[in-house]
Design a protein around this nucleic acid. Structure first.
Length: 778
DNA sequence: CGTACTAGTCTTTTT
DNA sequence: GACTAGTACG
């Protein structure tokens, strides 16, 4: 215990020992805030005699929670398992599972993800006869989500509509949307927070129960809290005022989802007698990197003044290169990483490539595959939002909560049972007319549907009822297998000979693996359980394993599944990178219009640009030793070529921090380190930037040439017959981005493109268009 | 009722 | 360019 304290600087020490009353820790990037939080927890228990049972620590992601959980476990030992370490969302789920009936819901509610919300909204708009061409579902969902972030209820919205009629329609939609959710016994993501606040406000007894339990509260990433979360914390801390928040206003990057930076800036106003401690010593980065970060963030006004410093030396200078195109940018990064790995300077896992938008990952991935660099992409399409996964999960949801209309409707004809749209709308009408749920209406199908259809529905209902009888005696794994057996889901999918049926089957297998892992308690990569079920808080809840599984699945974030065990380069958005650190960091696409994004440039609200700048600050401060920033003159955005000037953030960094003066008109190939290190067959990389595609395409690989042809110079006339013969012939070994290695069987000229048949080692024979397949000759 | 093709949208970022 | 929803047709 004591020697742990000795590793802290004086400010950190102060923060650790300040236990009673409100405390704001302004923790700059890399200033050791997790160390402070864990030490503080240990200090509370070991030195102050505080019962671990009375401590609550809240984070935003499961990953952050499980990291904190395991570090606290290591340090505290006995009793640490009764500390609540949790995300906002899972904390609220836990509370609602116990008390949702106090606010008119059933405790077995389901959680709707964004897709589900969209489906509901579509329904709502239809019912209210709203022309979604004029005002999209997205628009309404956005309005409702921000209303919830701000704790604006349907009733509040109605009051606003009295003064401003533009709220009228939104209010009607909002009301209908909430009613639909309630009928389905479902909460959307925002509701989890809002409804918990509602519960606390309406039921003082419940609130006090939790206030007494959580006498000591810590909140991480406080700058990202929205008004609803602020209120939730305020209520919980109201009685004892032992509230410690940690954050950095400079790292507030979630305004778009309602984060209110004023929560941290005004902490001292909200909590009288608050102690404020600034942590400015950085233990992560070199001084050059910190100077760059400080120089950028200095351009924001209205921030808490602070400046990062380190005892480390200046370190390496920052690299900035402007490349001709996004392809060159990807090449440049690939070569840099390859060279470093080859020279033994670092492992792949020491490196991260960051970008503003998810779409930017694709080019880099292609180059990484060609170069054989192992990588992982964080984000993009969520595993749980894949069609086959959602299908199967909806079976589980239906079994778990028959009131979840959405889930029932999704699976009633999957796999095909001959129950079509007409039948579904009849059932719907019957349900509405009689105030029943969709599933209940199905059960009474004999009353209003013709015999033939009724039989089909009867079979479906019987199957679900059968599953439901077993639900408490079976593991989630067995239940999944039963569902797959009975519905012949996999057989049906394979029969449909869909392009990627095999990959989908594998996804289902992966889901079963996750279910098994869940049963074993190894829910997250580190093998830690986020929320232990100890203490009286969960008692009496009697949540089934099925519910628990569905709940966990609903609340996972992309970043949660990132493990540092694999030696891979990580590709992710700047947003996802927050909280992580890497020896080498590449920030790509530093272009006006991309980063900062077009929206923030054209916005008349200055704070939009400030948010982009904070995002840049977050990116820079991820780097420990080596920071490489790149931009491209031209890049394909949404199918068209765009030309961008280098980002203003580059010019905000003083020249002397760079290894080369930026803003040079163009970078020549020869200037790029290690371009010459490539093997002879890689001559493709040496193409001159200005060579016309027509003359240089001949020896390119498919991957390279296709995007070039459309990307670089596209004039009307060139569009005719632009497709070229691939550089591989039958018998050649090739690589595909998704299917891996395979052997070319046949190549034939179609009318729009060459068609190629490939026998993939793991996926079997596939026929595809050559230009689309982007096969790489091995 | 199911399938195949077309048109439109998307791209800022996510629990 | 990629995916999705909607429509027309069998």
């Amino acid at each position: 215990m004591n020697n742990l304290l000795q590793e802290l600087n004086s400010e950190q020490m102060k923060a650790v020992k300040q236990i009673e009353g409100p405390l704001l820790i302004l923790a700059g990037a890399g200033s050791g805030k997790t160390r402070v939080l864990t030490n503080r927890t240990a200090y509370m228990i070991g030195e102050c005699g505080i019962d671990p049972y009375n401590i609550l620590a809240i984070t935003f992601t499961n990953k952050a929670a499980s990291e904190m959980r395991s570090r606290i476990d290591d340090m505290v030992g006995y009793g640490s398992e009764s500390i609540w370490v949790s995300t906002f969302h899972s904390m609220c789920v836990r509370i609602l599972r116990r008390y949702a009936d106090h606010i008119g819901f059933s405790n077995s509610f389901t959680i709707y993800d964004t897709d589900d919300s969209k489906t509901v909204m579509k329904d709502v708009c239809k019912r209210l006869n709203i022309d979604t061409k004029q005002l999209s579902e997205r628009y309404f969902l956005g309005c409702i989500s921000s209303a919830k972030d701000e704790l604006v209820s349907v009733e509040d919205m109605e009051k606003k509509a009295v003064y401003d009629s533009s709220f009228e329609l939104v209010d009607r939609v909002y009301r209908e949307y909430q009613n639909t959710l309630k009928k389905s016994n479902a909460f959307d993501f925002d509701d989890l927070i809002v409804k918990t606040v509602e519960l606390f406000r309406s039921d003082p007894e419940v609130l006090e129960n939790y206030q007494d339990r959580f006498r000591y509260i810590m909140v991480d990433e406080y700058q990202d809290t929205n008004t609803a979360q602020f209120e939730l914390i305020r209520l919980l801390a109201l009685k004892y005022k032992n509230i410690c928040v940690v954050g950095d206003d400079d790292q507030s990057i979630y305004k778009f989802r309602g984060a209110n930076i004023r929560n941290i800036l005004d902490f001292e106003k909200h909590y009288k007698n608050a102690t404020v401690i600034k942590l400015e010593e950085n233990y992560r980065s070199t001084q050059n990197i910190l100077d760059a970060a400080n120089a950028v963030i200095r351009n924001n006004i209205g921030r808490k003044d602070k400046s990062l410093w380190t005892k480390k030396g200046r370190g390496e200078r920052i690299h900035y290169r402007q490349l001709e195109s996004a392809y060159d940018e990807a090449d440049f990064i690939t070569e840099n990483i390859r060279k470093k790995k080859r020279d033994g300077e670092l492992e792949y896992s020491d490196t991260a490539v960051l970008y503003r938008t998810n779409a930017q990952s694709r080019l880099i991935e292609e180059r990484f595959i060609m170069a054989g660099i192992p990588y992982n992409v964080v984000g993009g399409v969520n595993f749980y939002s894949r069609r086959e996964i959602k299908d199967i999960l909806c079976y589980l949801k239906t079994i778990d909560n028959a009131r979840d209309d959405l889930a029932v409707k999704r699976i009633i004809n999957v796999p095909k049972r001959g129950i079509g749209a007409t039948t579904i709308s009849k059932v719907d009408m019957f349900a509405i007319a009689n105030g029943l749920s969709f599933y209940e209406a199905l059960k009474r199908a004999d009353m209003y549907l013709p015999g033939k259809t009724y039989v089909k529905i009867r079979e479906f209902v019987d199957m679900i009822e059968g599953f439901r009888e077993e639900k408490d005696s079976l593991t989630v794994e067995d239940m999944l297998n039963n569902i797959l057996d009975e519905t012949e889901y996999i057989e049906n999918m394979e029969a449909s000979d869909e392009f990627d049926a095999k990959a989908r089957v594998e996804n289902i297998e992966e889901l079963i693996n996750k279910a098994v892992a869940f049963e074993e308690g190894n829910t997250f990569p580190e093998g830690t359980e986020i929320m232990d079920g100890s203490g009286d808080i969960t008692e009496g809840m009697r949540e089934s394993r099925l519910s628990a599984f569905l709940e966990e699945v609903a609340l996972v974030a992309d970043i949660d599944s990132v493990s540092d065990e694999d030696n891979r380069v990580l590709l992710m958005t700047l947003h996802s990178a927050k909280g992580l650190e890497f020896s080498d960091v590449y920030i790509t696409g530093l272009e006006e219009g991309l980063f900062p994004g077009y929206m923030s440039i054209s916005s008349d609200d200055d704070s939009d640009m400030e948010e982009e700048r904070r995002l840049c600050y977050v990116g820079i401060t991820r780097a420990e030793k080596n920071l490489v920033m790149t931009s491209a003159r031209s890049r394909m955005v949404r199918g068209e070529v765009q030309y961008h000037a280098p980002s203003r953030f580059i010019s905000e960094i003083p020249n002397e921090l760079f290894d080369q003066k930026p803003r040079m008109p163009r970078i020549r190939r020869e200037d790029i380190p290690s371009a010459g290190s490539m093997g002879p067959d890689r001559s493709v990389f040496h193409s001159k930037p200005y060579m016309l595609p027509e003359s240089s395409q001949k020896n390119r690989t498919a991957v390279k040439s296709k995007p070039r042809a459309t990307g670089m110079i596209t004039r009307g006339a060139d569009l005719v017959n632009t497709f070229e013969k691939p550089d591989y012939v039958p018998g050649d070994r090739v690589k595909h981005i998704k299917f891996g290695d395979g052997t070319v069987l046949a190549l034939e000229k179609g009318k729009r493109d060459y068609e190629v048949s490939v026998d993939f080692d793991t996926y079997g024979v596939k026929k595809m268009f050559a230009n689309f397949a982007k096969l790489i000759k091995l």
